[in-house]
Amino acid sequence: MTTVEPTSSTTAAAALLDPEFLKSLRSQMLSFARLQLNDDQQAEDAVQEALAGALKNAASFNRQAALKTWVFSILKNKITDSLRSKYREQEHMLAEADACKNGEELDDQLFNQTGHWHAEERPVEWNAPTRLVHERQFWAVFDACLNHLPAKQARVFMMREFLELTSEEICDAASLTVSNLHVLLYRARVQLRECLENNWFTGPMGASS
């Protein structure tokens, strides 16, 4: 189903009150919020607040942006606020021992004793990665790989790459040191890269791409 994008503040408010448009938009917002917050209730709250904020500020909707993009930018801010308060309630999000164990296993799996790639783990060239945005199956694999990341790594990775927070903002929100953050992001990227390579670029799904 293709949703018609409104082009002015009047139609923006009307669209947000249209049950069919609202139902479709709300469902997409919820799936984003759940992935990031990992808490159904908090996701519901963030989406409700974002929609209420969008309706309240419909007059400031800039017709140069798609309505959905504009509403999602409000949702991103709500999610960021939720994450900040969530992490402040916890003393520290890193269980150091677990993180260390996970890192050593990953290192041993990828690198030999001199720190160079094991032959079978050496990254291969990815074929035409820019064409993949139009591949439905690629996004299914990408989603699965993202959801397969350990929770803490996934959360900081999404804060960095999806919410586009700076390192300082993430460290502040998640009570992390910069070096801890870099380690978590490194592990997330290494595992996401590995998962995509094994399941798309050199796997049966990507053999034809």
């Binding site: 798609a66 993009t69 820019t130 945005v133 999806f162 990227r189």
Partner: peptide, 25 residues
């Protein structure tokens, strides 16, 4: 290759974050 793939991951994430991409997913 790893370096190029780090850039690809960032590019995938910026596409992933676009709500329009939802229709494809």
């Amino acid at each position: 290759n790893f370096g190029k793939q780090m850039s690809s991951l960032r590019s995938f994430m910026s596409d992933y974050a676009r709500p329009e991409q939802d229709d494809l997913r």
